[in-house]
Design a protein around this nucleic acid. Structure first.
Length: 339
DNA sequence: TCCCTGTCTACAGAAAAGAC
DNA sequence: GTCTTTTCTGTAGACAGGGA
């Protein structure tokens, strides 16, 4: 009866973790199609070694593919009027879309693990498109641009469900290229990057993920004599990649600069631990031009990491000027990369 | 011995997710 | 669309591994 049901509800919700929307969708699905969640969806969460998915994320992808929408009055509405076979087919297409997504992320975007994904929500429209169409070469570049710009501009924050719902409903109506449609309806809010976008101090997140993608796509090489690629796949003694401060922290501190100026994206470069240790607290004015057994930084290597070529600003007195010029270079290079 | 990086922790603030 | 809650990230300072 109602009183028992209510009491159960209150006890569950007060003593344990309260159920959210995705738990309810999942529960509804488990009742509607037995074994799909347990035998297909849960194992898929750990199918790819470097890309772990959560069940709520997979449920949202399935919801998007199955209905072309994201907002519902009642969770059970998602599966209303669908038989088991139809839902199974939707999952099959979702899994196909996710597989293509991994290929896109590791191939075109050059993210070798999920650590670089700034927002999982941005992946949902891509899975929706990929569930019944694979990207052409040209589309891969547009999808990459869209994904990286949505991250930097924080397109998916706030009311994500409403945003996704609006996008999915519009995409569902399109017969031709859904990706072109996605770009056209969002491009106003995804302008080209400016130097201001690189004022961040964060070492992880949207801007770093974008920088990593650009570096790897440009075949960036390490700054030590090994000249290994900076793709994150080199293993071994001191091979791990580190965030190098182009102007050393120690010297900047001694010269009166605060942490806000020291830890800023324009002072970061990505190199191996080995190269970083070799440089230690040396000033860019000497090590950037060095070419000996240990450190070999050719003009090409500096260019990839957007280091301004004007030697005059590689000294402590010109640090602020260096930051301004590198931010401009970063914006220019990355806009070129995105196309 | 110096200084680079990382780790750890509590805390504050930023960003993302959720609620209305 | 706006406000609130949750989660994530950077900070400081001590310590460790490692190159010079």
């Amino acid at each position: 009866d109602y009183s028992t049901a209510t009491e159960l509800f209150i006890r569950f919700n007060s003593t344990g973790k309260s159920l959210n929307r995705n738990d309810l969708i999942s529960a509804e699905l488990a009742i509607k199609v037995e074994n799909l969640v347990a035998r297909k969806i849960k194992p898929f969460a750990t199918k790819y070694k470097n890309f772990k998915f959560t069940i709520p994320f997979l449920m949202q992808c399935l919801t998007a593919v199955h209905t072309g929408k994201m907002k519902f009055k009642r969770p059970e509405e998602i599966w209303d009027g669908s038989d088991k076979i139809k839902i199974y087919n939707s999952w099959k297409n979702t899994a196909k879309g996710l597989g293509r997504l991994i290929k896109f992320l590791t191939g075109a975007v050059k993210w070798n693990s999920d650590q670089w994904i700034p927002s999982m929500n941005a992946l949902i429209p891509l899975v929706f498109i990929l569930s019944n169409h694979n990207f052409t070469n040209k589309e891969q570049k547009l999808a990459r641009k869209w994904l990286l710009l949505t991250a930097v501009h924080a397109y998916f924050s706030g009311s994500v469900h409403s945003t996704l719902d609006t996008l999915l409903r519009k995409l569902s109506k399109v017969n031709g290229s859904k990706l072109n449609k996605l770009w056209n309806i969002t491009k106003k809010e995804l302008p080209k990057l400016t130097a201001d976008n690189f004022e961040t101090k964060r070492q992880t997140g949207a801007v770093m993920s974008l920088y990593i993608s650009m570096l790897r796509n440009s075949n960036a090489k390490d700054w030590d004599s090994s000249k290994n690629p900076l793709d994150g796949n080199v293993q071994g003694h001191n091979a791990s990649l580190e965030i190098h401060h182009i102007f050393p922290k120690d010297i900047l501190l001694k010269n009166g600069y605060g942490y806000n100026q020291i830890n800023t994206f324009a002072n970061y470069a990505i190199i191996s631990k080995d190269a970083n240790l070799s440089i230690s607290n040396e000033m860019p004015k000497t090590y950037l031009k060095r070419n000996n057994n240990k450190i070999v930084i050719k003009k090409k290597d500096r260019k990839v990491q957007c280091i301004p070529e004007d030697i005059k600003i590689w000294q402590i007195k010109k640090y602020k000027r260096f930051l301004v010029e590198r931010r401009q270079l970063l914006a220019k290079r990355i806009n070129e990369y995105l196309g």
